[in-house]
Simulated scan of single mutants.
Amino acid sequence: MTEPAIRPRPGRPIRLLFIDDAPLDRSRLARILQSDGDIVSLGQVPTGPAAIGLVAREHPDVIVLGVSTLDGTAQSVIEQVMAQTPTPVLVLSTLIEDRQSPRAVEALVAGALDVLPVPQRWTPELEAALRRTVRQLSRVQTIRHPRGGLVRSAAAAPTAPIRSRPTVVALAASTGGPKALATVLAGLGGLAVPVLVVQHLHPDFTGGLVDWMSRVSALPVQVAEHGQEARPGQVYLAPGGLHLRLAGGMRLELAATPVTIHQPSANELFRSVARHAGAAGIGVILTGMGDDGAEGLRDIQRANGQTFGQDEETCAVFGMPRAAYRLGAVSDLLPIEQLAAAVLRSAGRGTT
């Protein structure tokens, strides 16, 4: 997919800290990242308590975490950073050459914002892409994980109208989404309606994401196929590079058009649910950058469906839910831990 250009920013340089569980070519990476002058290295440290302490003292703008072993240390580092000193984490791994490793998805679920393979050879194009990624991540506001003290009760959902069509749940997420999706899907036990999911993710990550979600979801998870019937109690994940839409007769539709920044697109999914499920549609917009999904969620609301968004405190990035909220497209903004219950309540009033 095509991403907007992220150019060097004027003013204070981006302060970057390297943490790795086994030696990478640190000097080469430092040279690559600092070559444009807008990124500076605070140094390189091995994983462990000293690294967590250094993050707390120095407050880097971005952490580059090198992952070369399978001992789970890297995931622990991510979780500790996000719990103590929330910082955008980019994982560079020698273990995901095909970008389908469950390790990559585990890092995203732990709180990393992006995962990239370490190439066999750094080309100028790959070097430039790495710098663009660091610049993009430096602009992300991160939120503390895990979050404690969430004692607010979910607002009572408005009474749903009587529905004449089968209920369909549509979930959409982007940056920070795998962890949020894992939380929601784990709480949907007993849901007897189809669940359609769009996650902005590189196509090569789809297999790993499905494997991970299958392990944590209370419902069976599969990659959506064109033309298949959306069955109750099943989760259908959009494949990378294709839009997932609900079509007539509760069939699923995959399409490469329209060409959009994000493929799959949350707007495409939500609009199709509004069109074919109407008041029986339930839309949920989760953490992510940008505004994809806001207009589509408004369509579900205008069709008298139910709409929910993840609240700011529990979002890794509040961009997508904020955009939907500003459009008036969200009935309730709720903590991530309360969204599954809200979906179950809403679906329970309207299933047929």
Rank of each mutant, 00 (worst) to 15 (best):
T94D: 12
Q80L: 14
P166V: 01
L90R: 10
P146S: 08
L130N: 07
A172P: 05
L95D: 00
P166Y: 06
M82H: 04
R131Q: 13
L108V: 03
V91Q: 04
S138K: 00
Q100G: 15
L108C: 06
R132V: 10
P124I: 04
A155I: 05
R99H: 12
H145S: 00
E97Q: 12
T159L: 15
A170Q: 10
Q120H: 04
Q141W: 09
L171I: 09
S174V: 07
R131A: 05
A110H: 01
A170V: 06
G111M: 01
P102R: 13
R139N: 09
I143Q: 11
L150D: 13
R103Y: 15
T142P: 14
L113N: 04
R121A: 13
P86E: 04
R165H: 12
G111I: 01
A128I: 01
A107V: 08
V89Q: 07
P166T: 06
I96G: 13
P88W: 09
T85Q: 13
A83M: 06
P158L: 02
V81T: 10
L171Q: 09
L171N: 05
D98R: 12
E106P: 00
S174W: 11
R165N: 12
L137G: 04
S93H: 12
A160P: 00
L137A: 10
L108M: 10
I143K: 09
T142L: 06
R144G: 07
E127R: 08
V168A: 04
V169G: 08
P161I: 11
A154K: 03
V118D: 05
T123A: 11
A172Q: 01
A160V: 02
A83W: 08
T167H: 02
S138N: 02
T142D: 06
A156W: 05
V118L: 14
S164L: 13
L126I: 05
M82C: 05
A155D: 10
Q136P: 00
P146T: 00
L130A: 10
R132E: 15
T159W: 02
Q141C: 04
V118R: 00
A129V: 04
A157D: 13
L90A: 12
A110L: 13
T87H: 03
S101K: 08
A160M: 12
L108R: 03
S174C: 03
G111E: 12
A112T: 04
R144N: 02
A173P: 01
R135S: 11
A112I: 13
V115D: 10
T123M: 03
P88Y: 06
A154N: 00
T167G: 09
R144Y: 03
V89I: 12
